[in-house]
């Protein structure tokens, strides 16, 4: 297949980083469309035509339009030649899918809540209130409209923040134990599960030193280092624009 690939992505982390890294691992060149979450680019009419849910990322392959970061990665792995990002072993494939779902639907939303309350909310709060209101009105998913309102006003309840913190701490413990059972997440080979988890955990030793670090989580540190050194990761990180990107370098120094 020689059709052009175009990717609409934000920073190379969380959900955007998944297809970015999968494409880079496969050696597939793509047209990069930086979609600024903090300017609400994902709710603009042209974007909603591609993804009516108004979430990032979106991938175009020829005239196909694909959404949902983990499902896009599976497509990328199946549609292009190059390094296999899923092993042959069927039981390992099951485990990889389990761990990706656990991140996408249980742990990831808790990371998001903490990230939005600490970074996304404060980053957009200074904008003109009328402009913000109009921006929120354009958000298609009702649950997301609520999340944005809370992020902007700093109104996540104590109970929901505490629950998110509990989940993040437990998720980190589970990852540490898993990397004691396997060389990589869910199997002994580098796979989509590593890309999925790495995108949400790479900066843990810096952002949450109480949860992850040399002494507390040696397996996670070993794994982060292995993943950091992959050429696909290095190449992809150059596509970031906010200071999230410079944090990577700091984490690197901490580990090397």
């Amino acid at each position: 297949m020689t059709e052009q690939v175009a990717l609409y992505h934000w920073e190379p982390n969380a959900n955007s980083g998944k297809p970015m890294l999968a494409l880079a691992e496969k050696g597939v060149a793509y047209e990069s469309h930086y979609t600024d979450l903090l300017s609400f680019d994902q709710h603009k009419p042209e974007y909603l035509k591609m993804n009516p849910n108004g979430t990032i990322p979106v991938m175009k392959h020829g005239d196909r339009v694909l959404t949902e970061s983990t499902a896009i990665m599976e497509y990328v792995n199946e549609a292009f030649d190059g390094t296999a990002l899923m092993p042959e072993d069927v039981q390992a494939r099951w485990r990889i899918r389990w761990w990706m779902k656990f991140m996408d639907q249980w742990l990831g939303p808790s990371f998001s809540m903490l990230g939005w309350s600490m970074f996304v909310g404060p980053s957009v709060r200074q904008k003109d209130p009328a402009e913000l209101d109009a921006a929120i009105e354009r958000i298609p998913l009702p649950e997301r409209r609520t999340a944005w309102r809370k992020a902007i006003s700093g109104n996540f309840s104590d109970a929901e923040m505490a629950e998110s913190k509990r989940r993040v701490a437990l998720g980190v413990e589970m990852l540490e134990a898993e990397l004691g059972r396997h060389d990589y997440v869910a199997s002994d080979e580098y796979s989509l599960a590593d890309i999925n988890w790495f995108n949400s955990t790479y900066s843990l030793p810096l952002g949450q030193p109480d949860l992850a670090g040399k002494d507390r989580t040696p397996n996670i540190m070993r794994w982060l280092k292995q993943v950091y050194h992959r050429p696909a990761v290095q190449e992809t990180w150059t596509k970031g624009r906010t200071d999230l990107a410079s944090r990577y370098r700091l984490v690197m120094e901490e580990i090397d």
């Binding site: 196909r64 959404t67 499902a71 896009i72 599976e74 497509y75 199946e78 549609a79 779902k101 639907q105």
Partner: peptide, 15 residues
Amino acid sequence: PLAHWEMMMWCRYII
């Protein structure tokens, strides 16, 4: 691959 993606999207919606 595209049909597989579609099936996974559908299942994800159900889940």
